[in-house]
Lab assay of single mutants.
Amino acid sequence: HAATELTPEQAAALKPYDRIVITGRFNAIGDAVSAVSRRADEEGAASFYVVDTSEFGNSGNWRVVADVYKA
């Protein structure tokens, strides 16, 4: 099962156990969220919340930071 994305309210009520950072070329924010979901799932997380997204220069590469939560 894939890790689910939390709302800001849900994330605020929970304590993350880790923070992950992924970088890559994403065509849309949805693609980045899917990549975070896969990584969170690999780490055994039940859910995640994207904290920050930023573009690296003009290369089209993105850096996505997310907190991950157990259950």
Rank of each mutant, 00 (worst) to 15 (best):
H1I: 08
H1G: 14
H1L: 08
H1E: 06
A2S: 13
A2V: 13
A3V: 11
A3H: 02
T4P: 04
T4M: 13
T4C: 14
E5G: 05
E5W: 07
E5S: 10
L6P: 03
L6N: 03
T7H: 04
T7L: 07
T7W: 03
T7D: 06
P8C: 13
E9D: 10
E9Y: 08
E9A: 11
E9P: 07
E9C: 13
E9V: 09
Q10C: 14
Q10I: 06
Q10F: 05
Q10A: 08
A11G: 02
A11V: 04
A11E: 01
A11F: 03
A11Q: 03
A12N: 12
A12F: 07
A12E: 08
A12Q: 09
A12H: 08
A12K: 12
A13N: 12
A13V: 14
A13D: 10
A13T: 13
A13L: 14
A13S: 13
L14V: 05
L14G: 05
K15E: 10
K15I: 14
K15S: 08
P16W: 05
P16S: 04
P16Q: 02
P16Y: 04
Y17D: 03
Y17H: 04
Y17L: 03
D18S: 13
D18Y: 09
D18E: 08
R19T: 06
R19W: 07
R19P: 00
R19M: 05
I20D: 00
I20Y: 05
V21Q: 05
V21N: 02
V21K: 01
I22L: 08
I22H: 01
I22A: 01
I22C: 06
G24P: 00
G24H: 04
G24K: 01
G24D: 04
R25H: 12
R25F: 13
F26I: 02
F26H: 02
F26E: 00
N27W: 09
N27V: 09
N27F: 08
N27S: 12
A28W: 09
A28V: 09
A28M: 08
I29T: 04
I29W: 13
I29P: 11
I29C: 10
I29E: 07
I29K: 11
G30Q: 14
G30I: 12
G30R: 13
D31I: 07
A32G: 03
A32W: 10
A32R: 03
A32V: 12
A32S: 03
V33H: 08
V33S: 04
V33K: 13
V33Y: 10
S34Q: 13
S34Y: 13
A35C: 10
A35Y: 09
A35W: 07
A35H: 06
A35E: 12
V36P: 05
S37Q: 15
S37H: 09
R38D: 05
R39P: 02
R39E: 04
R39V: 11
R39C: 10
R39M: 08
R39Q: 08
A40F: 03
D41P: 00
D41S: 15
D41Y: 15
E42S: 08
E42V: 07
E43I: 15
E43C: 13
E43R: 08
E43K: 10
G44M: 05
A45M: 09
A45E: 01
A45D: 00
A45I: 04
A45T: 05
A45N: 02
A45H: 05
A46K: 09
A46R: 08
A46G: 12
A46L: 08
S47F: 15
S47D: 03
S47Q: 10
S47P: 02
F48E: 01
F48L: 00
F48N: 00
Y49E: 01
Y49L: 07
Y49K: 04
V50W: 02
V50R: 01
V50N: 00
V51M: 02
V51W: 03
V51Q: 03
V51I: 11
V51S: 02
D52M: 13
D52I: 11
D52Q: 13
T53N: 06
T53F: 15
T53A: 15
S54P: 01
S54C: 15
E55Q: 13
F56C: 12
F56R: 04
F56K: 06
G57N: 09
G57T: 06
G57C: 10
G57A: 07
G57Q: 07
N58W: 07
N58H: 14
S59Q: 10
S59R: 07
S59H: 08
S59W: 05
S59N: 12
G60F: 04
G60K: 08
N61M: 15
N61H: 14
N61I: 15
N61L: 15
N61W: 15
N61G: 10
W62N: 01
W62C: 12
W62Y: 11
W62A: 02
W62R: 01
W62L: 06
R63N: 06
R63V: 13
V64G: 00
V64M: 03
V65N: 02
V65P: 00
A66H: 01
D67E: 08
D67V: 07
D67F: 14
D67S: 05
D67A: 05
V68S: 01
V68R: 00
V68C: 05
Y69P: 02
Y69G: 00
A71F: 12
A71K: 10
